[in-house]
Design a protein around this nucleic acid. Structure first.
Lengths: 248, 248
DNA sequence: ACCTCCGAGTTAACGGCGATAACTTCAGTA
DNA sequence: TACTGAAGTTATCGCCGTTAACTCGGAGGT
C-alpha cells in the first residue's frame, strides 16, 4: 500500500480500478451460476448471495438484471472471438486456418453450451425483440472474423462462384446490398458463397447445440466434419481430417 | 339440458367434458399471452387473471407452471404436424409433396414465431436438460412425417446415395444405428441422405427463426427457396418455384 | 494532515411470481 | 334427493427484481 507504484497514470484511479474488479467478480459469479445451475439460476439475489453481499448492492454496478445478463454475454462473445482468432493464427495455409477456426468454434460451443446459448439463442433475440445496438455490434464483430478470412481467400486466388444473373431477383438484391454494406471488397457472387457457407456451418452447429440432432446422433462430431468437408469443397480448399483420421 | 342427447356413452362424463373444456381454455389463454406479450408473460397468475379466476385455480388443472407450458407446446406440435400433413396431402407427385411440406413448415414458423420457439428452442431443451419423454415423443412424431415421405420416395425409384464404406466409421455406425431404430425400411446410405437433408432444412430455418440471418437478409424467403432447390437436387427431384416465379 | 464527499453496502419495503394448505360452495352422480 | 368430490376461494410462504432512504468508510483534494 505504502509503496509508490507508478503513481502517475491515474487515468484509471484506484476508485475505478476497484469498481471494475467488483464488476468483473459479479460477471464471473453470474457465469458460474449459469454453468452450474442453468439460466434460471442466474438471479441478482443469487449472485449477491454468493458474493456475500445483499441483493441491492449489485445495482451499484448494473442497472438491472437484464443489463447484467447483457454484460456477461458480451464476455462470452469476446472469449469466443479470441478463441477463434487464436485458432486462425495457429493455421499454416488458407485451408488449415479456416478448418481450425470452424473446429475451434464448435469446440468452444461444445465445451460451453450454456454460454453458447446466451450468445446465439438469447430469449431477447428470439422473442421478436429487435436487435439492440450492443448485441448487434457484438454479432458483427464475430461475423467479421470469418468474413475477413474469406475475403482474404477471395483475394488470394478466389473460389468458384455462380453468376448472380442466374439467381432470383429478391436474392440478388440482398446479396448486392450486403456486398455494399461490408468493409471487405467482396462482390455479390462471392458474398453468395460466403453466406451459403455461413448458413451451412451455423445451421448445423445450431441444431446440434439445441439438441435437435440427438434423435439420431449421440456423437455429432462426424456430422460437423462432414459439413466442413462440404464447405472446403465449395471453397475449392483441401479438406483435412482433424488429428488422426479415425479418432478425434 | 333436459333433452336426452345420446345419454348412453358416459365414457366421457359431463364432469370430464367440462374439465377438458376448462383445460383447453387455459392452454388457449396461455398461447394468447405468449403471442401478445412473449414467453415471460405466460405466467400462471396472468392466465388466471385473464380467465377471471384466482391463481391457485389453475393448479386444479395443471400441476405446475412447467406442466402448463409443456401442454401448450404439445398443442403447437399437433398443429404443426397437421399443417404439414395437409400440405403433403395437397401435393400431386413426390416433388410437389415434399416442396409443399417444407414450405408449409416455414410458413407456419414465420406466422407463429413464438410457438416455433417453444417447440424447437425451449429453454428446458437447450439448458442441458435430457430429452424428457413427452417432448421426445412429440419430436419423433414430427420427424416421422418427413421420414415417412422420404421412405416413400426411396421405395418409388429412390435417390442417389453414397456408399457408406467411404464414410468415417463413427458416422457409419450412427447411420446404421438409426437405420435399425426406425420403423421405415431405409438402409444406412438412404438414412445418410435423409439426415443430411433434415440438417440442411432445419439448420437454415433455425437460423432464420433465431434472427441469425438478419445481419444480411431482410427477407430470408429466397434463402429458404435456395435451400429447397439444393434438397431437390440431392433427392433427384425437380425443383419448382412456389407460385409465380418472381413473387411469393 | 485534515476534511469532505461520494460511493459501496445496508435495511425496509413494494409488487409479482410459483406453489401449498385449508376452507367453502356447488353441481354431477348415484 | 342426498352426497361426495371437484372447482374455486383466501391466506400464506419464499423468492424474485427493483427502489428508497440510510450508514459508513475511505479516496481525493486542499
Amino acid at each position: 500500500m505504502r509503496v509508490e507504484e507508478e503513481a502517475k497514470p491515474p487515468v484509471t484511479s484506484r476508485r475505478t480500478l476497484k469498481r471494475e474488479a467488483a464488476m468483473s467478480r459479479i460477471r464471473v459469479t453470474a457465469r458460474e451460476l449459469l454453468v452450474e445451475q442453468g439460466t434460471a439460476a442466474v438471479t441478482v439475489s443469487a449472485v449477491a448471495r454468493r458474493l456475500q453481499v445483499t441483493g441491492p448492492a449489485i445495482y451499484r454496478y448494473y442497472d438491472s438484471h437484464e443489463a447484467l445478463i447483457q454484460a456477461v454475454t458480451a464476455d462470452f462473445y469476446d472469449e469466443l472471438i479470441d478463441v477463434i482468432a487464436a485458432a486462425r493464427d495457429a493455421g499454416t495455409d488458407a485451408a488449415d486456418r479456416l478448418l481450425r477456426m470452424c473446429r475451434a468454434l464448435r469446440a468452444w460451443a461444445v465445451a460451453h453450451p450454456a454460454e453458447y446459448g446466451w450468445i446465439f439463442q438469447h430469449p431477447a433475440t428470439a422473442a421478436g425483440m429487435a436487435a439492440e445496438s450492443a448485441g448487434a455490434a457484438a454479432g458483427d464483430r464475430f461475423g467479421a472474423v470469418f468474413r475477413a478470412e474469406l475475403a482474404r481467400l477471395w483475394r488470394n486466388g478466389g473460389f468458384p462462384v455462380r453468376d448472380t444473373a442466374e439467381l432470383p431477383q429478391a436474392l440478388r438484391r440482398q446479396l448486392e446490398a450486403y456486398s455494399a454494406d461490408i468493409v471487405e471488397d467482396l462482390p455479390p457472387q462471392a458474398v453468395h458463397v460466403l453466406l451459403g457457407c455461413w448458413i451451412r456451418l451455423f445451421g448445423t452447429l445450431s441444431l446440434e447445440m439445441s439438441g435437435q440432432l440427438e434423435f439420431a446422433f449421440d456423437d455429432p462430431e462426424p456430422v460437423f466434419e462432414e459439413c466442413l468437408a462440404e464447405l472446403a469443397d465449395r471453397l475449392a480448399l483441401e479438406y483435412r481430417p482433424p488429428r488422426s483420421p479415425d479418432q478425434v
